[in-house]
Design a protein around this nucleic acid. Structure first.
Length: 418
DNA sequence: TCTGGGGTCCTAGGACCC
DNA sequence: TCTGGGGTCCTAGGACCC
């Protein structure tokens, strides 16, 4: 969908592309199981998953969408095909795609498992026009993965992202930077990445509905209410988002897992078992990345809202048993028997393991040295034979619990959760 | 439609200090 | 001990993303 006027070989002062895989997980399923091609397919977390993570375009055409309940979707479309997610496969495909993009242009920001921003500005010297480079990127994705993607290209990241979703699937949308402001004029502000309900409401109350309205609003109003992000929004609406791309893999601020459980669970043992499961996952992930944390957030979502606490270990660590000890404390002191439907265990401010000289062996519930060796052995087995092959006995009953993948998974760094 | 799961960043305001 | 002035740290909560 390239407008002929826009295919001009001039050098853009700044050129940003966004590559977005179409219905990524569902497309991988269809690629690997051709009988799914052209059919309505919904991907869920495991066979038991009741929430649709993503679905094919055939399903979307019927009105099915991400986040929908499976039973609801089946009412719309009885012949809907459910596929359990295969996180390891998606992770692998994603990694290969990101590497392929990097070979075309080195300046790639991995935005999520199925999206990447590419700053193609410098590559213009090598390849020529940004439009041509975008073609190369699209080709690279297809040659590597056999999958189609949508590309948006413009002079800033927000406009590029907006462009990418204009023609899906298999889109190719160019908005030259000098046309961005004009083309956004009639676009609802909430279409832009970064403006959701809260900010959208604030803007609407001030008469700003489409991007063109933003000029009526002094930037200072947004800055006062939302700080720097507010200031950025003002520019975004005019096709001039100043935000640069971020290439560094930064250390994570938190590492956590949560799980929704049967509603109104009141059995202490069941709650503790779920917490144990989250504990095993969080601590294993910390160890895999050679991280530890001192503070953990442990919380239960009850019918009356969240209860829980941030608890500190005497010394930063990642020992499953110590962490579980914190969970027991939270249940003992913060839970009064209310119905629980969700548990959460999160390590806050994880940092690389510090080699400490334990001159005064701090009194902790477990022997740290021994614990370290034990978990090194457990992790080694699980790395080789699959997650949770070796796991606390109470979790065995639940061992069918699937690995989940979130669209926020990134192929590099710590957000690799599987 | 929100009970899927996993994250990020920012701000206001209180406590505390000199 | 009478609306000084400036700084830090921490937390809760809001907003947003895929």
């Amino acid at each position: 969908m390239v407008d002929s006027r826009t295919v001009c070989p001039v050098h853009w002062p700044r050129a940003i592309a966004l590559v977005d895989m179409n219905a990524f997980f569902a497309s991988v399923e269809a690629r690997d199981f051709p009988r799914l091609l052209g059919k309505p397919v919904a991907v869920t977390n495991g066979e038991q998953g009741t929430c649709i993570i993503t679905c094919s375009y055939e399903a979307r055409a019927i009105g099915i969408y991400t986040g929908m309940r499976l039973y609801e979707a089946r009412q719309l479309c009885p012949e809907l095909i459910q596929r359990p997610a295969r996180p390891e496969v998606y992770a692998q495909v994603s990694t290969e795609i990101m590497q392929a993009l990097t070979r075309v242009c080195p300046d790639v920001e991995v935005f999520s498992v199925d999206e990447a921003f590419i700053d193609v500005t410098p590559c213009q010297r090598l390849y020529g026009s940004p439009v041509y480079i975008a073609r190369l990127l699209k080709q690279a994705v297809f040659q590597t993965s056999g999958l189609l993607c949508s590309i948006g290209i413009s002079g800033d990241r927000t406009t590029a992202k907006y462009a990418a979703k204009l023609n899906k699937p298999d889109g190719f949308t160019v908005i030259p930077p000098w046309e961005a402001r004009e083309q956004l004029k009639q676009v609802a502000v909430t279409e832009l990445c970064g403006i959701a309900k809260g900010i959208g409401r604030f803007l609407a109350e001030r008469g700003v509905h489409v991007c063109g309205d933003m000029q009526k609003l002094p930037i200072g109003i947004l800055a006062k209410r939302f700080g720097n992000p507010g200031r950025r929004i003002w520019y975004m609406a005019q096709g001039a988002d100043p935000e640069p791309l971020h290439y560094d893999v930064v250390a994570p601020r938190s590492i956590g897992h949560g799980k929704v459980m049967p509603p109104d669970t009141r059995e202490r043992d069941v709650i503790l078992t779920y917490l144990m499961h989250m504990t095993v996952k969080v601590s294993a992930r910390l160890r895999r990345h050679h991280l530890e944390a001192q503070t953990y957030l442990i919380a239960l979502n009850t019918m009356q809202g969240w209860v829980g606490d941030k608890l500190k270990l005497a010394v930063a660590g990642n020992d499953t048993r110590e962490l579980y000890g914190l969970c027991q404390r939270v249940v003992r002191y913060h839970w009064q028997g209310q119905g629980v439907y969700q548990v959460q265990v999160t390590a806050l401010d994880p940092h690389p393991i510090k080699q400490q000289i334990d001159m005064f062996d701090v009194k902790t519930p477990v022997n740290r040295e021994q614990g370290k060796k034990l978990f090194q052995a457990i992790d080694a087995v699980n790395d080789r034979y699959g997650e949770m092959v070796l796991t606390p006995a109470v979790l065995l009953r639940r061992s069918k619990m699937p690995n989940v993948i979130s669209p926020a998974w990134k192929p590099f760094g710590h957000r690799k959760t599987i």
